[in-house]
Design a protein around this nucleic acid. Structure first.
Length: 854
DNA sequence: AGCACGCCGACT
DNA sequence: GTCGGCGTGCTC
């Protein structure tokens, strides 16, 4: 007898064994999606292994059978199964949940229990049973969930089993069919050649147009195409079918989010000598890692039982440290091209699809028809189709956000994480576990697949740079900004009559220094009598930009702050009733918004506390900056880019496109404008206020601030016009500001590393966070204290001298959407030792390698 | 996740 | 005395 070890998608930690029925005996493979009975429910499961005997500890139990195969092809490879187990161990999450990361939503339907009334005349004793029977008589058969709802109670199992026992009802656990299905489109083909149609037969002009079109193609055409080309309608096509001239059919069509977009194919660019040195190292690694090319048959047999051990543990990881504009993307594109030539696939991760349209454009244009985009806002159908195409080996490059890592590509040769320092690479509550870090997962995939990882950034995460310094990963450096080919730059400069600041680099490329940064001390501005939002320097800078027809970016670092409403007499501030956070005034709808939960309310005209009518709006939002700009420079055209103006994902691209096309002189925005944009006409970047975000109780606050300022500073002067950066602050000596002003990454790194070492923070120890949430303030605190007690007890018992606990304490955001929040932070070489097997109730989340502790 | 089992207070 | 609350442990 053969047994399948199955992982089920619930919060159980273990796997379960089922015997393989005869009809599946030689068909069942690792990675197959199956239907099994689990407890009383019907559940989907993944076959993670196949054994010829049960493990000794359960040798004498009665196993249930594998009931059905839900997909004829394995839904994941052995590599993906192994990755799932690794995720479960590292992030302390149920293995089923980890494996389900690799599957598209909707691949299985939901599990339920259907109840059928067999004896309509039955009159059972017991009020609960009688009630159930009368409800079934009244409403007809239904699911157990519906019945519980109608009964307004949960405890009906004993009554149900009694009814089933006496033959009154039947309970049937079912697994619904998948909600995601292949999409089919109608097609038509010609059965008869035009010249075979007899002269006497009456054929309308619409029918002739269809016949002539179809006659030109020896295969079926999509009906939609036929209608579009001929102008005929479906009734015309139907008429042709009825006359036997045409056969209609259907084909499976892939839903593709890139399908309706045109990309102009581009060629590879010539590398500078600096890039060549980097590329040589990457290419050698790719060649070193290259496995023999597998045929489709070999790939299939690699996922069959018994050959699992073939997975090698190798792979190479690099940090590609390059300032903005240093040509990192061209290295990525060269590497992708190289692995595609090896018949392997590549994954290219970006922080957010909506904020990096230019990057996606470049990848899609370089590899036409080989790229798919994977991210959270795809429809279920698009995700499902992309997933199937990937599994079938029809996609070579996946571009996407962190979840794209789990696309079931058969032979991953390269993973790129662009802007690797970005916090969005960490999956964290309130999402579902596992709370993985895409950087660590990518490294694991690369090991399992004998592939290559490139982590790219101008401002690498402390942990990443530390690892590069200690030779745990390779270090590649691109210190110069490239402005383009010498001849092209020269021509452009002559055309606009500008003396360039370019320097001839080695070879034919030209480079340019990073823009000068001026730090303005706003305390001095106040002393000088300037109480406005813009310093004199920034005003002059904006004036110059307007006069010369150039462009500027104004950044507001609002992390952890907002403009709020307060009473001048008693100091009362309007707070969200569900989050206890100050509410933000929005000019557009004249309402107060809560940025945590989205709650909206009317601003008060009188103070609810003291009755005063001296209500004031305080603090600067993007709207206020916009208003102040228009006041100071009446003719200036301003465009605002923030979460409010870009409500839908595609709005980002539109706003950006309008700015690129010079429909505005100044763009005002928050963090998002600092991401990977290439805006050659921007000659001035102003940071209106660098201070918010510096004082946050988060050990990464300084790092984040430095990264943001450095990134946004890199936006200036990318064209031949040059540029400058002005940072306004009340603490000009702050390391995050001072080092950013010097474009001094290593200086900041060295400074910050001392802090981290002193406090035992990452990269010296790993940090985990236990987050406790509840709608009851007393419960959260009590639960957090209970967990902390248990952890301290365990530390003593296990003698974990390197493990320290911070808290329990209320989180910085003490309440979000009615939930009070407390947390416990754990610093340790390996927090999983302490946290393994910890009992977690509802509302408790373990976040390993936590990125954000607010 | 469900569901059973088991121990406690509050009802006919 | 039973009904129903929920804390605890198990599902191959």
């Amino acid at each position: 007898m053969l047994y399948a070890e199955v992982a089920i998608n619930t919060v159980v930690e273990q796997t379960y064994h089922y015997h393989i029925p005869e009809k599946l005996e030689h068909r069942l493979l690792k990675g197959h999606l199956v239907r099994v009975s689990f407890g009383t429910a019907m559940q989907p499961g993944i076959v993670v292994d196949i054994h010829d005997a049960l493990p000794p500890d359960i040798a004498d139990i009665q196993t249930k059978p594998i009931l059905a195969l839900l997909d004829p092809d394995p839904v994941m490879t052995v590599m993906h199964i192994e990755l799932g187990f690794w995720l479960a161990k590292r992030y302390l999450a149920p293995v089923g949940q980890c494996l389900w990361l690799m599957l598209p939503p909707g691949i299985t339907g939901s599990s339920s229990v259907e109840i059928t009334l067999l004896d309509h005349e039955a009159d059972p004793g017991g009020s609960v049973q009688a009630q159930i029977v009368s409800l079934l008589r009244e409403h007809g058969d239904m699911s157990r969930k519906q019945l519980e709802k109608l009964m307004k109670r949960k405890r009906i199992s004993s009554a149900l089993s009694a009814l089933e026992e006496s033959g009154v009802i039947e309970q049937d656990a079912v697994l619904a069919p998948p909600t995601a299905r292949p999409k089919t489109v109608r097609t038509a083909r010609l059965l008869i050649m035009p010249d075979q149609i007899a002269a006497g037969q009456r054929v309308s002009s619409g029918q002739w147009r269809i016949i002539n079109l179809l006659a030109r193609f020896p295969y079926p055409l999509d009906a939609s195409l036929i209608y579009e080309v001929t102008g005929a309608s479906s009734s015309t096509l139907k008429a042709l079918e009825d006359r036997g001239f045409v056969a209609r059919g259907e084909r499976i069509a892939y839903r593709d989010s890139l399908a309706d977009r045109d990309f102009i194919p581009t060629e590879r660019l010539e590398l500078t000598q600096e890039q060549v040195r980097v590329w040589d190292v990457v290419r050698d690694a790719l060649n070193e890692a290259r496995k023999p090319i597998l045929t489709r048959h070999q790939i299939k047999s690699a996922i069959s039982p018994g050959t699992a051990k073939a997975v090698r543990q190798k792979g190479t990881a690099f940090l590609l440290h390059g300032v903005t504009g240093s040509g990192k993307t061209e290295i990525y594109l060269h590497a992708i091209e190289h692995v595609l030539a090896q018949a392997r696939q590549a994954i290219f991760l970006v922080p957010e699809i909506a904020l990096t349209p230019q990057t996606i454009q470049r990848v899609a244009a370089r590899f036409p028809d080989q790229v798919a985009v994977v991210h959270g806002s795809l429809s279920t159908g698009e995700r499902y189709d992309t997933w199937r195409r990937a599994r079938n080996g029809e996609i070579n490059v996946v571009v996407g956000t962190r979840s794209a890592l789990f696309t079931p590509l058969p032979d991953i040769g390269l993973i790129i994480l662009d802007e690797e320092h970005d916090p969005s690479y960490k999956h964290a509550p309130p999402f579902n576990p596992p709370y993985y870090d895409a950087r660590a997962v990518a490294e694991r995939i690369v090991q399992l697949n004998d592939a290559t990882l490139i982590l790219g950034s101008a401002t690498p995460a402390m942990e990443t740079f530390y690892r590069a310094q200690h030779n745990e990963i390779g270090y590649l450096h691109l210190p110069s900004r490239i402005m383009g080919h010498r001849n092209r730059v020269q021509l452009q400069a002559e055309r606009i009559g500008q003396v360039t600041r370019y320097k001839a680099a080695e070879g034919s490329a030209m480079t340019i220094d990073l823009p000068p940064v001026q730090v303005v001390d706003m305390r001095e501005e106040l002393k000088g009598g300037n109480r406005g939002m813009f310093s004199r320097a920034l005003q002059e800078g904006l004036q110059t930009v307007v006069e010369n027809g150039q462009q500027a970016i104004l950044l507001l670092n609002r992390r952890g702050t907002a403009s709020y409403v307060f009473c001048r007499d008693c100091g009362y501030t309007v707070e969200c009733s569900r989050c206890d956070a100050p509410m933000t005034y929005h000019q557009a709808d004249e309402l107060l918004h809560c940025h945590r939960c989205g709650y909206q309310t009317m601003p008060p005209t009188r103070c609810p506390n003291c009755g005063s009518d001296r209500i004031r709006y305080f603090g600067a939002g993007t709207q206020q900056v916009e208003a102040e700009l228009s006041r100071t420079f009446p003719d200036i055209r301003v465009i605002r880019w923030d979460a409010d103006t870009a409500m839908q994902p595609d709005m980002h691209e539109e706003i950006l496109a309008r700015f690129v096309q010079q429909e505005a002189d100044v763009m005002v925005g928050t963090q998002m404008i600092a991401k990977g944009l290439d805006l050659p006409l921007v000659t001035l970047v102003g940071v209106v206020s660098a201070d918010p975000g510096l004082a946050l109780p988060d050990f990464r606050a300084d790092e984040r601030a430095f990264q943001l300022l450095t990134q946004v500073a890199g936006r200036a002067g990318r064209g031949i016009l040059g540029g400058k950066v002005i940072i306004q602050t009340y603490q000009p000596q702050h390391p995050s500001i001072a080092y950013a002003a010097q474009h001094d990454y290593t200086g900041f790194y060295a400074h910050e590393l001392l802090n981290r070492r002193e406090l035992g923070y990452p990269p010296f120890r790993r940090m985990a966070r236990i987050l406790v949430q509840s709608t009851h303030p007393v419960n959260v605190q009590r639960e957090a204290e209970r967990i902390a007690d248990e952890l301290n007890h365990r530390i003593a018992k296990l003698d974990l001298s390197d493990t320290t606990i911070i808290g329990p304490a209320p989180c910085f955001y003490t309440r979000i959407d009615k939930h009070y929040r407390w947390h416990i932070l754990i610093r340790s070489q390996d927090p999983t030792v302490l946290l393994r097997g910890l009992r977690l109730r509802e509302g408790i989340y373990v976040d390993m390698d936590v990125q954000d502790v607010l």
